[in-house]
Design a binder for these strands. Structure first.
Length: 465
RNA sequence: CGGGGCGUAGCUUAGCCCGGUAGAGCGCCUGCUUCGGGAGCAGGAGGUCGCAGGUUCAAAUCCUGUCGCCCCGACCA
């Protein structure tokens, strides 16, 4: 038995723990291209569930999906001054195609504002054409100097919403609505508490009027920007001549918003809930919610136990107590030649929220033995009514994960810091979220960052203060 | 782009100082016995030691160059 089965612990080296856990739970792997990664089925399954949940919420709030191309004429990026300033350093640029040098280089989208508002300008004439509420699921490329699995890679997957409105207030309301959707998603699906609020000018999106964000705290007490929603004002509509005629016959520039969340959230999920045994997936996002491990003594017992496990699985997946379209997601691990204990470790690494063990003893007692991934609590569940009990337990796990994450964040949050000395002390120590006053001066922000490495993550909404 | 570390089997690595048959653990394959928390025994497959030069009778080991990766910092969804 060698030590390489043990993970580096979070306390020992959080960053090493994160890398190991992502690789060993088979969420992702390094690709041959430096800084980019392969998202493996375990990781992509989580992303697919994230996509579905978000997409449903976008649709429910009146948005539709479309797809815009990967390549953007280089000149487009330059049309908005702040935008080009922000993105120019990290662009991937295609200069050749079909064996010939291109007349105008093409930028691989780092984000799609430019090409989308160019198209909107073509589609909008009248106020009657507004609002446009389009989202797209896409990949984007940003040539980052330092990358990390899921958190910052050259290419990543995301959704980007781009809307056009007739008035500032309508655009502002849209940006806020989306922020609310992101928050709801983070809390109710990811079980990840977030602060909502406004970014400082320094941290604002390149080309935006205002940037709102959701900020989460990871287990290393560091912040993770988990999603942003921008009120773009008329910056892009002016750059791309996105005009419309009003009811009274005047001509005005449209008001835009853009907003996005990315596969970074998978990384956030890992760093929010993971432990020294692997990742912990909140049930609502788990591709597999329940793994059944049949246990047998001899080869002769095996067939019977596997059959019993399959029968239990059928009972669970046939159950519609959560709704026709939200069946329990169950997997039976009937692999032979691997001992039960080894299976337990493997599914724990992969973060399956609930394990059910089924052996001769359980059959005899008409029960199944359950083991929660989050708390490690083990308890028998009566076989009769098992589906409802399992669903109930999953619900409890979901809410317990949120409560635990919230408690961790609050324990690492200090409010009402008014002395800079105290602030510096906290930052030199364990760090965490510190609520402190700010006079709005970017010079002060820069100095604090220089002296303590702390950044203004968010100017939090009132309820968080 | 700066600083640090590392390239030896699928993975983790020993060997390098002091040149002389390339080793281990995990994983993989076969068989038997096992099976309620990472199984045991037996047999087996798998290596141009990152790449290119050089020194030498002889290079994983010494020298020069080069490429790549990881980590930390500046920059960032």
């Amino acid at each position: 038995m060698s030590d390489d089965k043990k993970l580096t612990t979070r306390a020992d080296d959080f960053s090493a723990w994160y890398n190991e856990v992502v690789l060993r739970s088979e969420l992702a792997d390094y690709s041959p291209v430096k800084g980019s990664m392969v998202i493996r089925p375990n990781g992509y399954g989580i992303w697919e569930r994230m996509q579905r949940a978000l997409d449903d919420m976008f649709k429910a709030s009146g948005h539709v999906n479309a797809y815009f191309p990967l390549f953007i004429p280089q000149s487009f990026i330059a049309k908005e001054a702040k935008h080009v300033e922000g993105f120019a350093p990290e662009l991937a640029i295609v200069t050749h195609g079909g064996g010939k040098e291109l007349e105008e280089p093409l930028v691989v989208r780092p984000t799609s504002e430019t090409i989308i508002y160019h198209m909107y300008a073509k589609w909008v004439q009248s106020y009657r054409d507004l609002p446009i509420l389009i989202n797209q699921w896409a990949n984007v490329v940003r040539w980052e100097m330092r990358t990390r699995l899921f958190l910052r890679t050259l290419e990543f997957l995301w959704q980007e919403g781009h809307t056009a409105h007739a008035t500032h207030d309508e655009a502002e309301a849209e940006a806020i609505t989306i922020l609310g959707i992101y928050r709801k998603f983070a809390e109710e699906w990811m079980a990840m508490p977030v602060l909502t609020g406004l970014k400082s000018d320094n941290e604002r999106f390149a080309g935006a009027l205002r940037t709102y964000c959701i900020e989460a705290m990871m287990q290393d007490r560091k912040a993770l920007q988990a999603g942003t929603s921008h009120n773009l004002g008329q910056n892009f509509s002016k750059a791309f001549d996105l005009k419309f005629q009003t009811e009274t016959g005047t001509e005005e520039f449209a008001w835009n918003t853009s907003w996005g969340v990315s596969t970074r959230m998978v990384g956030g999920l890992v760093m929010t809930h993971g432990d020294d045994s692997g990742i912990v997936t909140p049930p609502r996002l788990a591709p597999i919610e329940v793994v059944i491990v049949p246990i047998w003594k001899t080869n002769d017992d095996r067939a019977g136990m596997v059959e019993a496990a399959m029968k239990l699985k059928a009972e669970l997946t046939d159950w519609t107590g959560r709704g026709e379209s939200d069946r329990l997601r169950v997997h039976v691990d009937a692999r032979d030649g691997i001992r039960s204990g080894a299976k337990y470790y493997e599914w724990e690494m992969r973060g399956v929220p609930l394990r059910l063990e089924l052996g001769a003893k359980d059959l005899e007692k008409q029960s199944v033995f359950s083991a929660r991934r989050d708390t490690r609590v083990k308890a028998p569940i009566p076989r009769a009514g098992a589906p409802a009990a399992v669903a109930d337990l999953l619900k409890t796990i979901q809410s317990d994960l949120f409560a635990a994450a919230l408690a961790r964040r609050e324990a690492a949050t200090i409010r009402g810091v008014t002395e800079y000395g105290q602030f510096k002390e906290i930052m030199a120590g364990d760090g965490g979220f510190v609520y402190a006053g700010w006079n709005g001066d970017p010079a002060v922000e820069a100095r604090v960052k220089e002296e303590t490495k702390a950044t203004i993550r968010v100017i939090p909404d009132a309820e968080f203060r």
